[in-house]
């Protein structure tokens, strides 16, 4: 199932900030269903990569303590308007997603 992703760029402190939003439950595997008392299985994003003009700029390994629908921010000091960025992610159940954008800060 494809999950919704959004990406936005803006200028912060003289750098380009990339904000990524992924629609993802980020289940910890510690929560219980209140009605059935069964543990809800863990389901969370493990890795997210940010590519800047085809080169790896940041690689985030995430744990279960990142909130639902994660909103992650990265900064690229050398990015200019018109540069290409691509974000990919993968979760513990093998789901993945990607989004491309052009820097417009």
């Amino acid at each position: 199932m494809a999950r919704k992703m959004k990406v936005r760029t803006r200028t912060q402190d003289g750098m380009v900030e990339v904000l990524v939003l992924v629609n993802h439950p980020m289940e910890t595997g510690l929560r219980k269903d209140k009605k059935t008392k069964k543990v809800i299985p863990a389901h969370w994003i493990q890795t997210m990569n940010l590519m800047h003009n085809g080169k790896l700029a940041a690689e985030a390994n995430l744990g279960i303590a990142v909130s639902e629908d994660p909103l992650l921010g990265f900064r690229l000091p050398k990015a200019k308007n018109g540069d290409k960025i691509q974000i990919t992610w993968k979760d513990n159940k093998g789901e993945s997603g990607k989004i491309s954008a052009i820097v417009d800060a």
């Binding site: 800047h52 700029a57 690689e59 985030a60 994660p70 909103l71 992650l72 921010g73």
Partner: peptide, 10 residues
């Protein structure tokens, strides 16, 4: 590898 020293999350 090349991004700046910044990260934000919830």
């Amino acid at each position: 590898p090349s991004a700046g020293g910044y990260f934000s999350a919830r």
